[in-house]
Amino acid sequence: MPGDVESILIAAIISWILFVSIDLLFGLPKTGGVSGAREIAGEIEREGGSLHGGYMMGNIVCSPDASAGTLLAACGVYIAGIPGGLAAAVLVYVGNRICYDRGYAGTTGALAATFLIYGFTTIGFSAAHFIAGMVIAILTIQGISHTHASRLLSRLWGWRT
């Protein structure tokens, strides 16, 4: 069983792959859902970033998507196991409806993350590792360098199409 720091890093990588793949699967980088997301994307492109990655970052800011689903599912599993994760999925769906979004990406992300994290808790990880890991994963997307993150997301979106 690895130590705490290694576990958090592994959990960060797993949740990064999980939420980026679900967001790409639901086509978040295709276009901005609301005008605010399009404005953020335009601003990132003006600073030298890429437009489709900017759309995805704007959509993450403007409505709870798979990343929010993963974080809240990790919180739910940490507090109450599988039922907590399902409650988190319901809450993410309600939050998506509040933010004028269809809510498929967030709910799917929360359900997938619930079962994935519960699976990992059986082999020695703790759900607290996944909470910290998810915060590190969202930091790498939104908080280090907008230009490089949008270029990376745009390249991944180019592979998918």
């Binding site: 609301v34 005008s35 605010g36 997301a37 399009r38 404005e39 953020i40 704007g58 800011v61 403007c62 409505s63 709870p64 929010a68 974080l71 809240l72 919180c75 739910g76 507090i79 109450a80 907590g84 409650a87 988190a88 809450l91 993410v92 309600v94 939050g95 509040i98 933010c99």
Partner: peptide, 26 residues
Amino acid sequence: PLTILAAAAYFVGTTLESNAIASSYA
């Protein structure tokens, strides 16, 4: 068990706030 409700409410609230700020700015 209520903490997950509070965390989700906080997250949705701040997301709605960002959405309103961005849309209003745009």
